[in-house]
């Protein structure tokens, strides 16, 4: 119940205005939302649209949502040293220990936009191929080691 009430209110707020470059795509239930983001001020990502899938548990916002990039014909997975090519994101904000319940769907989108905007490396995380081939865990169950907090 906590999650559905809170998400209902987030939706009301998002009716009014969303930060630039963020679009809501599918928010018709309280389990899974799709959001699109653009990062036009970084030449690495200019002109592309990335699709994010948010999955909420009943404990949201006390518990973090699960957030991944999803790929289809028109939406690639952005290239970034903290984003695996299967869409899994390594960001402390989305980890159990880094999540705070004052975050919301929009603020997560903004955080990911700024993570992309400040990136200069056109590369995947080290060990991307192995990770993508072998990983069977859901993002929330992976224990990432955060190498640096700068990105």
């Amino acid at each position: 119940m906590l999650a559905s009430k809170r998400l209902g209110k987030e939706l009301t707020k998002m009716h009014e205005n969303l930060a630039p470059g963020i679009t809501k795509i599918k928010c018709d239930d309280f389990q899974e939302w799709l959001m699109d983001i653009r990062v036009d001020d970084n030449p690495l990502y200019h002109g592309e649209v990335y699709r994010l899938k948010f999955t909420f548990s009943n404990g949201y916002p006390i518990e973090a949502p699960e957030v991944v990039f999803v790929r289809d014909e028109t939406h690639p997975i952005p290239i970034h040293p903290h984003i695996y090519s299967n869409g899994i994101i390594c960001l402390d904000l989305l980890d159990k220990s880094g999540w705070s319940p004052v975050n919301n769907v929009e603020s997560v989108c903004v955080a990911l936009q700024s993570m992309l905007a400040s990136n200069t490396k056109n590369e995947r995380p080290p060990g991307d191929e192995d990770f993508v081939r072998t990983n069977r865990q859901r993002p929330r169950d992976i224990n990432f080691v955060f190498h640096d907090d700068k990105v």
Binding site: I62, W99, S100, P101, V102
Partner: peptide, 17 residues
Amino acid sequence: ATIIEHLKRSATDPLTR
């Protein structure tokens, strides 16, 4: 009630950490 739920999981200020 809600901040206590959060603090039981993570004893940090939600805004400043």
